[in-house]
Design a binder for these strands. Structure first.
Length: 878
RNA sequence: GGGUGCAUAGCUCAGCGGUAGAGCGCCGCCCUUACAAGGCGGAUGUCGGCGGUUCGAACCCGUCUGCACCCACCA
């Protein structure tokens, strides 16, 4: 090892390898390593640099609290991608930041206030917003801390917040531009109103679920003119301004155009004919409440009906009379009772399940409400957003998710962007004393003079996050960062916000950046679930704070577990057992490297030429190169689960197990072969640690710096596939593995203890195994033959023969059982392959390769049967 | 009402046309001088049901059943 003054101050490098603890203790070193990375500026991105850019923006976490396992999952994937690209020599930017999360954060802070017995109105707008900023400072700090613990390699100096000055400017700029382009307008429509949050919300913030309701039939009008209507929301009848029937419905044709009496109100309302009515449903007659139902609103518009609002923002009845002041549920039962008293209920109410909208933030039943709001006209924007994916400029991964995307952008209603909240970007519009409306951009002065006031609403939180890929880079200024890092390379996010966020970024990105989409690829991941596949939620009690697991098992273990479950677009169940398994893997890496260091593995000097290497050396190098190629391919396809699994098995099974075990024999013998092998072991570990680094950055950093004496694996080169392959060596070692495994099985069946030495004679002549006798003896604990050797068991495997002297202690029955089982398997194999090869259709149609494979299997089954039969008959009689 | 996805070992899931796999769990033997957070060996599945295509199906097609999720303005 070379001297290295920058070496981390941890156990891995300050002690001699043999003094290292035998267990990896992540908690002691992860924090220090992270600090060092940040101090050295590894994660910062230089817009002036000449390297090719690679950009990913963080899906900005809401400042509502702390990160959950889902964030840890997403961050693991993004961090792995960016770390690899950084090692590949890209100018890498992982853009950090957070989202003010309008309604969500306001609700959280309001709940805090409620604990003090206060409402936001007690504080007033300004003081309340101050209070939210305070909350943001705390919560944001917590989130940053969690990200550091996770090892997120973000460019901290560039951290942004959706409400900071620059981003607010971006919001105002695009608002003004859209307004001037007539893509933003103000209109009175039926919106989803949350009577608890007291704000409008957009269509996708409404969560529909089946609620049990009661369908009640009410008779409107009298005698000949009576019409029975059915409703689940009797309270809205106070606002009815018509009854609608289908134009072709014979039953009601005579009534169309007449007026009938609306019970309880003394009002008379017209009967109108409208195509929307389904004559087959219920009585075929619908009460029409334009001010409280989106369909009725449309009917009303078609027939010029008045919009009569009967509930206020709290969903409390406002019309004068006995029901005034009742909230909607009280009103419902009271009104039904009143109707019954008048004999208006014609059929008993019956249970009825129907889909009802709920507020996605507080679950309150939404009240459709007529209201003046700001809207984005999405038609042209959505068209462009759809086209960018359709024509391949943006790829959605996995691809079948793009279908969902199209379904949405192609059937989009206008987007209600105003919210009656206090926390958020205030709408940059002023109203004058004479009804003037002025939209003001960031560079304009707001109108002055008497009677001007700013719109009191704020914007939907997704309005600002839709600008994230470019607002974080300085837009609307034409900054160098924007030029360098836009468009982003990939967007990594959950499929659950494909509509909320991805589609909005697409629309705004294309619009603001002159038709350049915000990113080349959208890589969608699934949701983290518990070990039984259940959704994690705080109320259900199965939510996990990633910090807890990181404290216990280390960040690497949590990260590796998450990466290992990351099949594209698929939910990932995760339990503590999984994390333990990953922790064990980290520990294995630790100890394997410790072994290597103790045995003088080195990265110094050139790798010896292939001719000077043993078969084992050539085998592992050959495998290593294959794995580099595999891992690269998986990375490029966002197959994190597969690349993690590939690395897990390669590292553990092939390097740490077989290769390390084989190298023990070589090291014991010493000489040039041992020197060569030390260099190869160093090489293999060096490359393996670099391959693993993006997934498990901490343990690899410690070990790699100790092994190589270099500054940091963070800035090391990503391994190149050197194209060296040695199929012959691979076959040779596979054969060795076969022999060793077979004899081990025999030993185990014979009840021999693993450490027990057994005299043996090996006949390896003529096979490629001849050179491996020492290794085989070592791996199988076989002694030299010695005096009086008697072969009591002879095992022919893969062309070689291993004869063991069990001093007559052989368990004949166990051996007979074992062989009988093998024989049965071989016979079955022979029967199957023979049948197949006797099938002419198969021979005619199957590819040659397949036929060859079957022939080979048949042949080996045949020789196995011969061999096993011989062994069986050679067994002593019981 | 539409749409999508999933049903494979005890659990959670890979595999997606040519001998059924992983992790965890389970059984047995071992503290073998890197690692017991380890080593070695082992057991376990009519790949949801029924049809079809194919020389060959866990894999393709149809259908049924059961579960998820998304979308939708039927009172």
């Amino acid at each position: 090892m070379t001297d290295n003054t920058q070496r981390p101050q941890d156990g891995a490098s300050s002690a001699r390898p043999e003094d290292l603890p035998t267990q990896y203790a992540p908690a002691e070193v992860e924090g220090q390593l992270y600090e060092r990375w940040v101090e050295r500026g590894y994660f910062e991105a230089d817009e002036a640099g000449g390297k090719e850019p690679y950009t990913i923006v963080i899906p900005p976490p809401n400042v509502t609290g702390s990160l959950h396992l889902g964030h840890a999952f997403e961050h693991t994937l993004i961090d792995a991608l960016t770390r690899r690209k950084r090692m590949q020599g890209y100018e890498t930017l992982w853009q950090p930041g957070m989202d003010h999360a309008g309604i969500a954060t306001q609700n959280v802070v309001e709940r805090e206030l409620a604990k003090e017995g206060k409402s936001r109105h007690d504080l007033g707008r300004e003081a309340f917003v101050d209070r939210v900023w305070k909350w943001k400072a705390e919560s944001g700090g917590q989130i940053s801390g969690q990200m550091k613990r996770l090892g997120d390699g973000v460019a901290w100096s560039r951290e942004r917040f959706t409400m900071d000055e620059g981003l607010s400017k971006a919001v105002q700029t695009i608002f003004k531009r859209l307004y001037d382009d007539e893509l933003i307008y103000r209109a009175e429509r039926i919106i989803n109103w949350c009577p608890r949050c007291l704000t409008a919300i957009s269509d996708i913030e409404a969560e529909y679920q089946d609620d049990e309701g009661e369908l009640i039939s009410i008779r409107y009008g009298e005698g000949e003119n009576a019409i029975v209507v059915a409703t689940t929301r009797a309270e809205t009848m106070l606002g009815d301004t018509a009854v609608a029937v289908h134009p072709d419905d014979e039953r009601y044709r005579h009534l169309v155009g007449t007026e009938i009496e609306l019970p309880l109100t003394g009002r008379r309302i017209p009967v109108v004919a409208d195509e929307h009515v389904d004559p087959g449903f219920g009585t075929g007659a619908v009460k029409v409440t334009p001010a409280h139902d989106p369909n009725d609103f449309e009917i009303g518009r078609r027939h010029g009906l008045p919009n009569l609002a009967v509930m206020d923002e709290h969903a409390v009845i406002t019309v004068h009379g006995p029901f005034q002041g009742l909230d909607r549920l009280e009103a419902r039962s009271t009104i039904v009772a009143a109707l019954r008293a008048e004999g208006r209920i014609v059929a008993e109410k019956r249970p009825y399940t129907h889909s009802v909208g709920h507020c996605s933030r507080c679950k309150t039943t939404l009240e459709p409400r007529l209201s003046m709001q700001w809207w984005v006209k999405v038609g042209p924007l959505a068209q462009a957003a759809g086209d960018a994916v359709r024509d391949g400029r943006v790829k959605i991964h996995p691809e079948d998710m793009s279908k969902r995307y199209f379904d949405w952008v192609d059937n989009l209603h206008d987007w209600c962007i105003s919210r009656q909240l206090w926390w958020g970007h205030r709408i940059p519009v002023w109203y004058g004393p004479n009804g003037e409306v002025v939209c003001v951009g960031p560079d304009d002065e707001p109108p002055s003079g008497e009677g001007w006031r700013q719109d009191s609403d704020v914007l939907d939180t997704w309005f600002s996050s839709g600008l994230w890929p470019f607002s974080t880079l300085g837009w609307p200024e034409r900054t160098d960062s924007l030029a360098k890092f836009y468009p982003n390379s990939v967007l990594v996010t959950g499929y659950d916000i494909l509509f909320f966020w991805v589609a909005r970024m697409m629309m705004f990105g294309l619009y603001a950046m002159d038709g350049t989409p915000p990113f080349h690829t959208v890589a969608l991941h699934g949701m983290v679930r518990d070990q039984f596949g259940k959704k994690m939620s705080k109320s259900f009690g199965n939510a996990v704070n990633p910090l807890d697991w990181m404290d216990t098992y280390g960040s690497d273990a949590v990260r590796f577990t998450l990466a290992r479950g990351a099949h594209p677009g698929v939910d990932v169940p995760i339990g503590e057992d999984w994390v333990q398994a990953s922790r064990n893997f980290a520990n294995k890496i630790w100890n394997a490297t410790r072994f290597a260091l103790m045995n003088g593995a080195t990265v110094e000097g050139e790798l010896p030429d292939a001719e000077r290497l043993s078969a084992a050396d050539r085998w592992i190098l050959s495998r290593l190169n294959s794995v580099v190629a595999e891992v690269d391919a998986y990375y490029d396809d966002y197959q994190f689960a597969k690349l993690s699994d590939t690395l897990f098995h390669f590292a553990w099974d092939e390097v740490f197990d077989w290769y390390v075990e084989l190298s023990k024999t070589t090291f014991a013998k010493g000489g040039p072969a041992a020197d060569a092998s030390r260099r190869v072991l160093g090489e293999v570990l060096d490359v393996t640690l670099r391959l693993l680094h993006p997934l498990v950055p901490f343990v690899t950093e410690q070990l790699w710096t100790a092994l190589t004496g270099q500054e940091s694996v963070v800035i090391a080169d990503w391994p190149a596939d050197s194209a060296f392959r040695d199929p012959a060596a691979e076959r040779e070692i596979e054969t060795l593995q076969q022999v060793v495994t077979e004899v081990r099985r025999f030993r185990a069946d014979q009840g021999l203890q693993p450490g027990q030495k057994v005299p043996a004679r090996l006949e390896l002549g003529g096979t490629a195994l001849a050179a491996h006798e020492d290794a085989i003896r070592q791996l199988l604990r076989l002694q030299p033959e010695g005096e009086g050797f008697t072969a009591t068991a002879t095992l022919p495997v893969a062309g070689a023969t291993v004869a063991l002297d069990l001093s007559g202690a052989i368990d004949v029955e166990a051996e007979r059982k074992r062989l009988a089982k093998d024989l049965a398997a071989a016979e079955k194999e022979l029967a199957q392959t023979t049948a197949k090869l006797g099938n002419e259709a198969f021979l005619a149609k199957a590819p040659d390769q397949v036929v060859e494979k079957i022939r080979a299997r048949q042949a080996s089954a045949g020789s196995d049967i011969e061999r096993i039969s011989a062994q069986l008959s050679a067994l002593p009689q019981a």
